[in-house]
Every structure is written in C-alpha cells, then in structure tokens.
Simulated scan of single mutants.
Amino acid sequence: MSQSPILTLVSRSYCHLCQEMEVALRPLLAEFDIDLEVLDVDADPTLEALYDELVPVLLHDGEELCHYFLDDRKVRDYLGEIR
C-alpha cells in the first residue's frame, strides 16, 4: 500500500490568507486522501528567504502549486495526476 502524498503549506500564524488557504484545502485533502504539513515561514530562515512575501505557499515535493490563494482547479488537476 502506498503512502499518502503530503502537501506542504508554508504559512505564518498571524496571516489571514494562510488561515483561509488551510481551511479551503480541507475538502481537497479529504477527497484525495492527502496529508498536509504546515511549516512556519518565520521559524526557518531558508523558508523565510524563499517565501517571506509570498505566503501562503502550497507545495508538493518542492514544486509550488499556488501562493496567496488556493487555485482549486490547478491543485485538483495536479492531485488527480499524482494519485
């Protein structure tokens, strides 16, 4: 049995867009049986250098799927391809 893919959300605690993206992701996570890890951009200097002003950023295996807002269609199509 293969392990569920993991999406990564680069986020920060006081970011309303980050919170909104995480909430918007929930139905897709359930539908595609995908796990989500949330990384605090402010806790990692490397992440901060890469994504500071772009958060929230949704990644899979280092590939950026979207930032600022969830691109539902793009993420849905992507998840359909990797499942």
Rank of each mutant, 00 (worst) to 15 (best):
H67V: 00
Y68F: 14
D52E: 08
S11G: 12
D61W: 01
L36A: 08
H60T: 13
V75W: 00
L47E: 02
P5L: 08
L36K: 00
G62F: 06
T46P: 00
D77G: 04
Y14N: 15
V57A: 11
P5W: 02
L36S: 02
L65Y: 07
R12Q: 15
Q3P: 00
I6T: 15
E20R: 14
T8M: 05
E20Y: 05
D33K: 13
L58I: 09
C18M: 12
L79Q: 01
I82L: 14
L36D: 04
R26S: 15
E81L: 13
D42W: 01
D52K: 03
D44F: 01
V75P: 05
D44Q: 03
F69D: 04
D61Y: 05
D77S: 12
L17N: 15
R76G: 03
D42K: 10
E22I: 13
H60M: 07
L7Q: 09
P5E: 13
M1K: 02
L50Q: 13
R83K: 01
D77C: 05
Y14P: 11
F69H: 14
R76H: 12
D40M: 01
A30M: 10
D42S: 04
S13C: 06
L58V: 03
Y14K: 13
L7M: 12
F69C: 11
D72F: 03
A30S: 03
Y78P: 09
C66I: 09
I82D: 06
S11N: 15
L25T: 00
T8H: 11
L25W: 06
E63A: 15
Y14S: 14
I6Y: 02
C15K: 07
D44E: 10
H67T: 07
L29S: 07
A43M: 12
L50F: 06
R73L: 06
H60V: 11
Y78S: 07
E48F: 08
V38P: 02
L59I: 04
L70F: 00
G80F: 00
L39H: 10
H16R: 12
V41N: 00
D33H: 07
V23D: 05
L7S: 01
C15S: 14
L58Y: 09
M1I: 14
I6E: 05
L65C: 12
R26P: 07
L39T: 08
D42V: 05
R83L: 12
L79M: 01
H60S: 10
Q19N: 09
S2E: 15
C66D: 03
L29R: 07
V23E: 15
D40H: 02
V55T: 05
E37T: 08
L36H: 06
P27N: 00
V57P: 06
P45W: 03
E20D: 15
L17G: 12
L50T: 06
D72G: 04
L70G: 02
V75Q: 02
D52M: 09
D42C: 01
L54E: 08
E64V: 14
L70M: 05
L25E: 02
L25I: 08
M21F: 05
R76Q: 11
L9E: 06
I34H: 12
Y78A: 08
H60R: 02
A49P: 01
E81T: 02
P45F: 04
E20M: 13
P27Y: 12
D44K: 00
G80M: 00
L58H: 01
Y78G: 09
S13I: 04
V10G: 09
C15R: 04
M1C: 11
G62T: 11
D71A: 13
R26I: 11
I6M: 14
